[in-house]
């Protein structure tokens, strides 16, 4: 029997996919029954989501007005690492954090470009982005994007070699 390169690589691809899927299923099983917090990221419209690569290009561009970048996670995580030029405005999951966010943006034109990000934990489990986005939407802001970090800030931003600043 003759084994062609294509056949071997095809088999390996099938095995790899199977291994990947079974590990994903196992992981989902151990977290089964976990409730999605209210105001989760699932409530954010897809059109308002920006990918890390797109934000990087935006920041590197020469556009006149840079977006206002606001981190809405914990202060300690902001101190661990944040996007240069971004500001910390309190946790979106806390009433005090939402108040801080409101205070920061209340005087801004409603068309101002704003980027919200967190990256505390996996995207669909982040408790901060959904409420923060809803707050800006309720205040009438029309140009808000939310940075999509699938796993966390470290994995999907810092480890990619994108710019990071430390400190409060």
């Amino acid at each position: 029997m003759k084994f062609s390169f294509a056949r071997i690589s095809g088999t390996l691809a099938v095995l790899f996919t199977f291994a990947l899927l079974s590990s994903k299923v196992q992981m989902q099983a151990q977290f089964a029954g976990a409730s999605v917090p209210n105001g989760s990221t699932l409530t954010i419209p897809v059109a308002q989501i920006i990918q890390p690569e797109a934000l990087l290009h935006l920041l590197q561009g020469t556009g006149a007005e840079k977006p206002l970048m606001l981190q809405v996670g914990s202060h300690m995580m902001y101190a661990e690492g944040h996007i240069p030029g971004s500001e910390y405005v309190g946790q979106g999951s806390q009433p005090a954090g939402l108040q801080q966010l409101q205070n920061r943006v209340s005087s801004l034109p409603r068309k101002r470009a704003i980027i919200l990000y967190c990256g505390c934990c996996p995207w669909n489990r982040c408790p901060n982005l959904g409420p923060a986005f809803a707050k800006l939407h309720d205040m009438g802001f029309t140009n808000v994007k939310v940075l999509y970090l699938a796993d966390n800030f470290g994995t999907n931003w810092a480890n990619k070699g994108y710019p990071v600043e430390q400190g409060r």
Partner: peptide, 26 residues
């Protein structure tokens, strides 16, 4: 740098980090 939670380190009896698990781990 802890830039995402959870993150867990497995430290052996000699005080050496043997493994690091980030995010939702099996």
């Amino acid at each position: 740098g802890v830039m995402g939670l959870p993150i867990t380190f497995l430290i052996d009896s000699h005080g050496k980090v043997q493994a690091q698990y980030q995010g939702e781990t099996n």
